[in-house]
């Protein structure tokens, strides 16, 4: 149970983020939901890479023991960077929309439809 906790939390974060994206009409809050999903995915990645008793793969004066394969950590870092770029882009879109439309409500930002 304890070792599954990170996975459960990751799934909860993803689900919370998705629910936020579905029920919140404010575009900024939707992007917050997206960030929650991203955090959940990051947590899942990192918890997959966890090995009980493993040591960091730094070879200089490393203690004895099993080293952890750092692939998922690298993936998480990459995803964090991608996430920053995406969030910045999305927020700047919302800024422009708010300036032009005077609202950031998803139900009013719908000039494109039909």
């Amino acid at each position: 149970m304890f070792f599954n906790l990170p996975f459960i939390v990751a799934a909860l974060l993803v689900i919370l983020g998705i629910i936020t994206m579905l029920i919140k009409r404010n575009l900024i809050k939707m992007i917050m939901g997206l960030a929650l999903v991203e955090a959940g995915v990051n947590l899942l990645l990192v918890s997959i890479g966890y090995r009980a008793g493993g040591i960091a793969p730094i070879f200089t004066s490393a203690p004895d023991g099993v080293m952890v394969m750092p692939t998922v950590q690298a993936m998480t870092l990459t995803n964090i960077v991608i996430g920053i770029a995406t969030t910045a882009l999305l927020l700047s879109f919302v800024m422009v929309i708010y300036r032009m439309y005077g609202t950031a409500n998803a139900e009013k930002v719908r000039k494109l439809r039909g």
């Binding site: 997206l34 995406t86 999305l90 919302v94 422009v96 929309i97 300036r99 439309y101 930002v109 000039k111």
Partner: peptide, 13 residues
């Protein structure tokens, strides 16, 4: 006038 940004936002999200 913001319409293209609306499209970009939907696509990006």
């Amino acid at each position: 006038k913001g319409v293209a940004v609306e499209a970009g936002l939907k696509y990006a999200v």
